[in-house]
């Protein structure tokens, strides 16, 4: 069946979004058509605004509309501790824990299977911060996979070169989980990282 061109265009564009399949794209497009005109315009404007006004902070890489971002400006934060994360979404998660140090977001996926190298990671501001002498500890909050391990080793080497201690998040069991159903790898990591109580 042929659809009206503008509708088809909208569906095609929604389809480009992650997790959106043809059925969802169609449902969303039809929903947008039913929205009051003002709301639809608001949605379009919100997309344009976010796209134009939000950018990675030049200091930490977190998404912001002011530079440096509100985290980097916050003087109540502990500047001696720097947490390195892969994505801005990881920072949102870290913030929920009550962590009050600063961050550094890599914002670029390093994948062993892709054609990229550790040298391609944008680390200028990270190295400047290490060199400033303010940072005493780098917390590596990278995903617990092989890529995370490779990046962690690389960054730990850089930190060591500036006499800065590097730590990484513990690997272990999810809270509320069932030990019997934990996979062997997680359980072994948890055993290796056990703590005295």
């Amino acid at each position: 069946m042929r659809l009206a061109r503008p509708l088809e265009n909208l569906i095609d564009n929604l389809l480009k979004l992650p997790t959106i399949g043809p059925k969802t794209a169609q449902r969303l497009a039809l929903y947008i058509l039913k929205m009051p005109a003002a709301e639809a315009r608001q949605l379009a404007q919100a997309i344009i605004d976010a796209r134009e006004k939000v950018f990675p902070c030049s200091r930490c890489g977190y998404l912001t509309d002011i530079d440096p971002c509100f985290i980097c400006r916050d003087e109540t934060r502990d500047t001696s501790i720097l947490c390195v994360a892969e994505e801005a979404s990881d920072i949102i998660a870290m913030e929920r824990t009550g962590y009050r140090g600063r961050y550094y977001v890599l914002n670029k996926n390093f994948n062993l299977m892709d054609d990229n190298n550790l040298e391609d990671l944008n680390l200028d501001s990270f190295i400047n911060q290490l060199a400033s002498g303010e940072v005493k500890e780098v917390v590596l909050a990278l995903n617990p996979d092989i890529e995370g391990e490779v990046i962690s080793r690389y960054l730990a080497g850089l930190a060591d070169g500036h006499g800065v201690k590097a730590t990484r998040l513990a690997h272990g069991l999810p809270v509320g989980g069932d030990i019997e159903f934990a996979d062997e790898i997680t359980l072994r990591r948890a055993l290796e990282g056990r703590k005295e109580i």
């Binding site: 190298n117 550790l118 040298e119 092989i146 490779v150 080793r153 690389y154 080497g157």
Partner: peptide, 11 residues
């Protein structure tokens, strides 16, 4: 001869 290579080799 890169640092990348040295780290990859370690792992």
């Amino acid at each position: 001869n890169t640092r990348s290579f040295a780290i990859i080799e370690e792992v």
